[in-house]
Design a protein around this nucleic acid. Structure first.
Lengths: 232, 232
DNA sequence: TCTATTTACTGACTGACAGTAATACTTTAG
DNA sequence: CTAAAGTATTACTGTCAGTCAGTAAATAGA
């Protein structure tokens, strides 16, 4: 009796099709300017059908954002699995986050949207939970990596690894969102390159949490990277 | 010919009345849930009249937010004028920001709203400029304070004071917005008190930018505050 | 194979709400 | 006293999220 399974698969595929369409429209127009009619047309379905799969426009938006969390997860996983030492991995995570920002800008914007309290009212609890679960996977990975760094004595043990992760993360996120919306203003009015500021703050905070020996290794790694850049 | 002036004043007062009403409604419901009809009713005017003074709902929202920038300005001014030493002033600024967050939460939320790219489309350039001008006054004050700290050799001179200001500011803002929306989750799931995290990151960053001598003074100041808390 | 039922989908509608046009009322200027 | 300018309102329009009543197709049961 595979009919039920097939139906299930088809339903799932339809959902993905809707998500594909919604993603295209949301990426282009953002949450507010995108309309459900546009998404329906992009999906080649009637608007009412969208509501058979998602309870609201905001729900649909969040479902697209969850895809972004998956991409982020892969980037972080690659970074942590890729590096040989804790310091290398940490630098890799930093780069992964920068990549997320630079090459998946649309997803990045969606994530910050989830923060605004405005947003939450119109989203189903189920979708909110789904988002939190995915988001949590990413935090879990980062936090356990930090904890490992502490146990291997490469990251200071006089701060909570969770707190260190939150601080570094939040700092980067807020600078990035400032870059996204205000980079030209700062460049023009005060001749500040916020991208450089982001790099600097990353360096400051990473140095602040490393143990003295790890800090030396990190300095060396940065010197090597510098050299690499000069050669290209 | 004072008639023109009187008219001007009356128009200004009407505008303030509308702002008062809008503020009440926006604070209670947020941008999206608030309706212009509600605001009109709260202002005891017809909706069309609102549009004689503000070009859109978003414009009105931003006009309210600008009031918040004024409050922030006063708080920072008090802090900087109040302290005797650079370190004291710096600690005062930190407290001022915390006060802004804790006792003017609604304004704080409005500020972060301005960051989202979604928002900008529906706002008139005039209002955007007005917001930037006010916002700039605050930045100006903070940045020139940092610059003074550098010239008095209490703040490190190997970083750009503007960049230091941006980093500290952004870090605080992002942690606060996380506190605003996720405090319970972090407390419940990982037993993290984000308010403590905020304090820690403030301390870390402030220590990072002070010169060695100033850092000693800061440590002492924190000890005194600690004592004070125990006595109350 | 015929009929009943469930599933997937849709066109047409509704209600909410931002924004506007037409019009009335009030004050000022000549 | 009247024209002009300014202030306000009522009644409207257009847009859009979300819904409802119903259709068509697939499936299950006889």
């Amino acid at each position: 009796m595979g009919i039920h399974e097939r139906k299930e698969r088809e339903k799932e595929r339809r959902k993905e099709e809707i998500l594909d369409a919604a993603q295209r429209v949301f990426f282009e127009k953002g949450l507010n300017s995108a309309t459900m009619d546009e998404i329906a047309e992009a999906a080649e379905l009637s608007k009412a059908t969208l509501y058979l799969h998602f309870v609201s426009k905001e729900d649909l938006y969040l479902a697209v954002a969850i895809r972004g969390l998956g991409i982020a997860h892969e980037l972080f996983k690659e970074a942590i699995d890729g590096g040989t030492t804790i310091v290398e991995k940490l630098n890799g995570v930093k780069k992964a986050y920068t990549t997320l920002f630079n090459t998946h800008r649309n997803y990045f914007r969606m994530f910050s949207f989830f923060q605004t309290p405005q947003f939450h009212k119109q989203v189903s609890d189920a979708m909110k939970d789904a988002f939190r679960v995915e988001s949590n996977k990413n935090w879990e990975m980062i936090i356990s990596f930090f904890a490992r760094g502490v146990s291997e004595k490469r990251i200071r043990n006089d701060f909570d690894p969770v707190e260190m992760a939150i601080v570094i993360w939040s700092n980067a996120a807020s600078l990035m969102s400032r870059i996204d919306s205000e980079a030209e203003v700062w460049k023009y009015r005060r001749n500040i390159d916020l991208n450089k500021t982001l790099e600097t703050s990353f360096r400051l905070l990473i140095e602040a949490i490393l143990t003295p020996e790890a800090r030396l290794e990190y300095a060396e790694l940065l010197r090597d990277e510098e050299k690499h850049i000069q050669f290209k």
